[in-house]
Amino acid sequence: MPKCRIGLGAQTEPLAFSFQARDSAWVRHRFSALILLLGVLLPSPAGAQIFSPEVKKVSENFICQCGCNHQLSGCGMLHCGSANPLRSEIDQKLQAGMAEEQIVDDFVTKYGGVILSAPTGEGFDLVAWTLPVVALLAGLLVLYRVVRVWTRRRPLPASTPSEPGGIPEEYRNRMEKELKDFD
């Protein structure tokens, strides 16, 4: 891959440059030009942003709408057209003094329930939360009954090699040995 560095006496090629910490003021003057070039190279309409931990916490309530299926706090897609504007909106609302619950309500009103990262505890959403628990409890109940029935059954009378149709001695010994190994 062709590479080059500006201001270090290295070869130059279009769309390839670098900036180093040890460089002089001469290079530092070109720093803005370098970032501008990077802007061309890696187009980022809004530029990358840093958000506060409070924004991150509130954005955990929401799902990014870019299709990544991640929480808004976790969308790592570069220059995501959904995550950054939504995070900025949360930031603005927090700075305007809104509480987390108010922001959540506001977002649901504006974008619909699809913006939430998990079903709410109301209406049909409640089924989402309760059904797995109900299924597990029902499974436990069934298991309890099964275990009770199975433990009450009497063991079958053991067949002896002398019985007609019984397992021959040779195989019985082999079976015993294999069961022993198995355990």
């Binding site: 955990e60 799902i63 299926n69 991640h70 929480q71 976790g74 619909g112 329930g113 699809v114 913006i115 939430l116 990262s117 998990a118 079903p119 209406g123 049909f124 959403d125 989402a128 939360w129 059904l131 797995p132 299924a135 597990l136 499974g139």
Partner: peptide, 30 residues
């Protein structure tokens, strides 16, 4: 139970849209 919970969370958005006519998302918190 784990399989059911995963299946249920995966298909819930479809079921919810059928029942309530409103889209829902089931993400990592669930």
């Amino acid at each position: 139970a784990t399989t059911f919970a995963v299946l249920w969370g995966t298909i819930f958005p479809i079921l919810s849209e059928w029942v309530t006519n409103e889209k829902r998302t089931v993400g990592a918190p669930f």
